[in-house]
Design a protein around this nucleic acid. Structure first.
Lengths: 247, 247
DNA sequence: AACTATCTTTGACAAATATCAAACGCATGC
DNA sequence: GCATGCGTTTGATATTTGTCAAAGATAGTT
């Protein structure tokens, strides 16, 4: 715990202000006047850096805060008694991690950085307190949680009804869409996760994921070179993923 | 719309008070004094009856309220463009339906009564307003949403990592556990849903579900007669479902 | 540059589940 | 009582994905 405290002090000395953050529109409510925004800066207590491969929190740990990803890329996963692991999500800049911990006051999954990352630490008591004061923040928090519920509904559709190639097409389209919303290319990406992690998320073995990638490559729909992917024919991907839901 | 309005009037004339409801401990926060509780009665605007097979709400419909099941049994499901359907959950007395609608102000799934049912209609603006006034209600709402996120994480584990018999064992154990919490038997139940609906929830075809039921029956773990199920060896079910998560 | 560890790709084969088809059971209405 | 319809069970077969194994690619290290 000691090293974290020291690190927090270092980071807190850097200006920590939502009102001044370029990710504001991704993780804060819109339609906010400047005064409100400045009061809202109080939700974020500190920032925290997480090295690649390190855990932001682990299952069973006491829940105190939710986290907004500032930079880097995370995965969340649950594991069963007998050691099987299920990746439940991948999170990028502007997305919120840790909502699973509210119900039992303990985290219910592991959050692991897939590359060096920085998060804004938002003690949940701050969030609740300010939510009572600012209806627009309250509504925003509810929307964030509801969005997560809807996303998981879509994943259930994917896992329950789609075959391997449909799952991968859906996955790729979702990823580039989110990257594009962050100002990155809508046709090129570098995957931050392994075939095995993709497979875990999609309910497939890594070999099946690899084969689907190769098939798309052979068909000229995408260009794949290990973790680099270029989407050549987005329409073909969308056609494969007919079972498209809006998430 | 007319018939519903008339029905609402009829139902509202019956006493609608959370403070007086025998499901209170399931769907309202605990540790509430009586005065607070009486103010909280305002969250529920009306009650509404839904006949078997009817929809409480449908995907795309404007979101105004969340619903607490008072009696009866529901399923929620999403459907894809090409008509595939995925059951995302089954809800019984005391459980909350409709949280999916908050993010986009439109419902994102269909909620269908599997038997004649009655729900408490809680306009979400009431919920938010009273949440600002009562921190204990605010916390409760957050916990309900977080619980749904955690439940869906477990379903992802089930769909992504478990085979047919494990899925069915997990499903049966979860059902009886919830029924038992409502004062019903922990060994006997009558399924409210068809094999096809179970299959949709579990990512299996109805024939596979039926075969798994038969297998459990042959092994003496359960007794099955159509929709009647008696669990003879709960420990055997738990052993099959090693990948047990606490949901 | 060579070595190592890790991730990825590909092939051959096995296992699980889906599909198709038919029979069965139970409730409903005539 | 019998016919009808819907849901369930069971069997035979097809398809998809998983498993096991080996080779290829990449990045980091010495």
């Amino acid at each position: 715990m000691k090293p974290e405290v020291i690190q927090d002090i270092v980071l807190a000395s850097v200006k920590v202000a939502c009102s001044d953050c370029n990710l504001r529109e991704l993780c804060m409510p819109v339609g906010f006047n400047l005064e409100d925004m400045q009061k809202l800066d109080e939700v974020v207590a500190t920032r925290r850096r997480i090295a690649q491969g390190e855990m932001l929190f682990r299952s069973g740990e006491a829940f105190t805060s939710i986290y907004a990803v500032r930079t880097g890329f995370f995965k969340t996963c649950v594991s069963s008694e007998d050691g099987r692991e299920q990746v439940t999500g991948f999170q990028m800049a502007g997305e919120i991690i840790g909502l699973d911990g509210i119900v039992s006051d303990h985290h219910n999954c592991n959050a692991i950085a897939l590359e060096d990352a920085e998060v804004c630490v938002m003690p949940f008591s701050n969030v609740e307190e300010l939510s009572r004061e600012f209806p627009v923040l309250q509504r925003h928090v509810h929307k964030v949680m509801s969005r997560e519920i809807v996303r998981e509904n879509s994943v259930m559709m994917l896992l329950g009804n789609m075959r391997a190639e449909e799952r991968l097409a859906a996955f790729l389209l979702n990823l580039v869409q989110r990257l594009h919303a962050r100002g990155l290319s809508q046709s090129e990406l570098v995957l931050r996760m392994s075939r095995e992690e993709i497979g875990s998320y999609l309910g497939l073995k890594l070999e099946t994921v690899s084969r689907a990638f190769s098939k798309f490559g052979e068909e000229g729909i995408i260009e794949v070179k290990q973790r680099y992917v270029r989407i050549i024919e987005p329409e073909a991907l969308k056609k494969i993923f007919k079972a498209q839901l809006d998430y």
